[in-house]
């Protein structure tokens, strides 16, 4: 959930305050909690996120070209959820599934370091299996459409166009 105070950062701190027997509970992000001042923050605590962010921020840059790329990826922002690469470095978690596309170019070295691999080899959802087939068929049909248009076989081309539309609708569903 988002921090109700600033509405920007994830609420990662939950605290319960009891004053004269009155209990109040609040969820805040680290920054707002710090500003409020009455919440102890665990600056020195070890967390996996910190470990992860430390190995994101201290990526060795071997050339000037690479260090420029580092500056660039820190200002990269996911268009869907608004998370920047910097924020990811801090939380160690992505904001949404589109972050994987936004930060794709910077993902590979990180995945290699964590997993030693970059490509999934496990289970595939049934649905995706079907969609994957449709996507491949669409590619083939589009190529055929182009050929028919070029050969000026418009009646055939129209049939293929309708097939493509039907498949696209199926994909959207």
């Amino acid at each position: 959930m988002l921090c109700p105070e600033c509405g920007k950062r994830p609420a990662t701190i939950h605290y319960t305050k009891i004053i004269n027997g009155n209990k109040t509970e609040q969820y805040l992000c680290e920054v707002c909690a710090h500003e409020k001042g009455d919440v102890p923050t665990f600056e020195n605590g070890f967390s996996f996120q910190k470990l992860l962010s430390s190995f994101l921020n201290f990526e060795p840059s071997f050339s000037e070209h690479e260090s420029r790329a580092t500056v660039k990826h820190q200002t990269l922002r996911c268009p869907t959820c608004g998370m920047t690469y910097n924020q990811f470095g801090k939380f160690g978690r992505f904001g949404c599934s589109d972050c994987y596309y936004t930060f794709r170019t910077h993902l590979e070295p990180m995945l290699r370091r964590i997993h030693g691999h970059t490509t999934h080899r496990g289970k595939i959802p049934e649905r995706t299996k079907g969609a994957l087939k449709i996507r491949r068929k669409l590619e083939l049909l589009k190529e055929e459409l182009a050929r028919k248009v070029q050969a000026e076989e418009f009646e055939e081309a129209a049939k293929i166009r309708d097939q493509i539309r039907a498949l696209q609708e199926q994909l959207e569903q």
Binding site: L52, I114, G122, R127
Partner: peptide, 23 residues
């Protein structure tokens, strides 16, 4: 439901340490 899945990355997870199989 449809799960967040990518042909190359597998099942997409909040933390990249769970990416792929999520197992």
């Amino acid at each position: 439901f449809t799960f967040a899945f990518d042909d190359q990355c597998g099942y997409l997870t909040s933390c990249p340490t769970n990416l792929g199989t999520g197992i």
